[in-house]
């Protein structure tokens, strides 16, 4: 079981790294959206710092969503999804591995990029730890929830906008907790409560959403 997962993980990573530009797209999008805000609201650093938690989180949310649109598409088109459904290993474990590989390449990079953009928005250095930690706990939830939508819409020709419509409402708790943590640390309050909540949501998402992703993929493959 574990061996299959490791094999799958390395295969997925190899496939993803074969197209480095596609990996960079969500990151560029993330940076671009964040740099739009100072242009829209003005360069005052005080104002920017107060809206920074929300801006960083909304941008991260959209970037993850954008990167998820094609998560299962190529596997669907070349028929490997059908093989996954038929495989002796439970589909939910396989999709969890797949989402993990995707998160390692996109979510993690986004987390690592975020302190830089945080500094550009005028976040003080002491909040960067909370920023990193909240994104580290939050982006896996975003990937997992988004994968449910990607699984349900994989068979559709134009699933992109529909995916956003289905999934964005489900992202709201993560958005509230993540930006709340950052806001708390910006005001010098302890952010641990938010981070614990994010962590428990992540545990919930890791344990339950693979089942929903697997169910969604089975429906899409059967069509």
């Amino acid at each position: 079981m574990l061996k299959v997962c490791i094999l799958l993980l390395s295969r997925e990573m190899r496939v993803l790294f074969r197209r480095p530009m596609e990996l960079a797209n969500p990151l560029v999008f993330f940076a671009l959206v964040i740099s739009l805000f100072p242009l829209a609201v003005g360069p005052e650093s005080k104002l920017l710092a107060t809206i920074a938690p929300g801006v960083v989180w909304v941008a991260a949310l959209l970037a993850v969503l954008l990167s998820l649109d094609g998560l299962f598409r190529s596997d669907y088109e070349d028929g490997s999804l059908e093989q996954w459904v038929l495989a002796p290993q439970p589909l939910s474990v396989l999709v969890l591995t797949k989402v993990l590989a995707h998160w390692l390449c996109s979510g993690l990079a986004l987390v690592l990029l975020s302190p830089l953009l945080g500094l550009m928005l005028g976040l003080p250095e002491r909040t960067l730890g909370v920023l990193l930690l909240s994104l580290l706990l939050g982006t896996p939830i975003l990937s997992l929830l988004g994968a449910i939508g990607a699984a349900l819409t994989v068979g559709l020709k134009r699933g992109g906008l529909l995916l956003a419509l289905l999934i964005l409402p489900l992202y709201i708790p993560v958005l509230i907790l993540g930006s709340g943590a950052l806001q708390a640390s910006l005001q010098g309050l302890p952010a641990a409560g938010y981070l614990w909540w994010l962590a428990s949501l992540m545990v919930l998402a890791v344990s339950l959403s693979p089942l929903a992703i697997a169910a969604g993929l089975k429906i899409s493959v059967a069509e």
Binding site: L152, L166, L170, G216
Partner: peptide, 14 residues
């Protein structure tokens, strides 16, 4: 049938 099943999964997740 797929539409119904997909909606069922989505509403359970919701």
């Amino acid at each position: 049938d797929s539409a119904a099943k997909a909606c069922a999964v989505l509403s359970i997740v919701g």
